[in-house]
Simulated scan of single mutants.
Amino acid sequence: MTSKSLQPLQQPQALYKSVQDAIRDYILENELKPGSALPSETQLTKMLGVSRNSVREAVKALQLVGLIESRRGSGIFVGKFSVDPLLDNLPFSLMEDKQQFFDFLEIRRVLETGMIKTAVATITPEQIEELESLLQKMESLAQDDKRFPKEDRLFHQTIYEHLDNDTFIKLLDIFWLMFNRIVDYVDLTRQTPLEIYEKHVAIVRAIKAGDAEEAYQCMARHYDDIKLWG
């Protein structure tokens, strides 16, 4: 395969961002794999017609998200990209904008209701026991009019943990991190702890019965109640 070259850039503003785009395009167009060598900083400077500082800023930014890696004495290489750095920073972005939080909540609702039927079909007896144990803890706290974010977080993780989808579990974690940060500042739900507990009871009842459609409906209602008061 003939390697596609880099061309001089024509964008004077935020030049390092244009350099990032050029490097990303170069990787994609040449179908480079993790570990593949990239042009050196000196070569990038000449090929793109930009300053060394612009190239260094771009390289540093792409390193932060794992797209490339720089090895001292060896050069620049395509990295093993991971979404983790992006996901780790997402809660700080969502904290600034309540509407953005609810937009993300809607994405989470679609994902979780979309996965629940598969989870019901494959969930293990041990997971159901864990869910019932968490319900007992939730009930105890709810009877004292206390909320149960820790148990709630574990509840949702337990439903899906056997699906072996690390990115999905990461998204669940981000939601709860964000929820716990923002709940002190905005009224996300006017349900009492006991009402929230009952929603979780209904979800477990459907899962235990193997009723995927009812589990889907219960999970959807759970999210609708949160969104209702947003």
Rank of each mutant, 00 (worst) to 15 (best):
H222F: 13
Q217S: 11
L194V: 11
L90C: 00
S51E: 01
I128S: 02
I27S: 00
D184E: 14
Q127W: 00
L87W: 09
R190L: 13
Q100A: 14
T189M: 08
I76D: 10
T42E: 14
G75V: 13
D97V: 15
S40V: 06
L9Q: 08
P12L: 09
A37L: 09
G49T: 07
E57I: 06
A215V: 09
D166T: 15
Q127S: 12
I207T: 03
E198R: 13
I23F: 01
Q20E: 15
M219G: 10
T158C: 08
M138C: 10
E132R: 15
L188Q: 07
S93W: 12
F101W: 09
Y197I: 03
L135H: 01
P8R: 10
I76V: 09
F104S: 13
L62R: 01
A22P: 01
E31V: 04
I128K: 02
F155K: 00
N180E: 15
I123M: 08
E96L: 15
D225M: 15
A37F: 01
W229K: 05
E213Y: 05
R56F: 13
W176P: 00
E161I: 12
T192N: 10
I68M: 04
R71G: 02
K4I: 12
L32W: 05
D152P: 01
L135D: 02
I107G: 00
V120A: 06
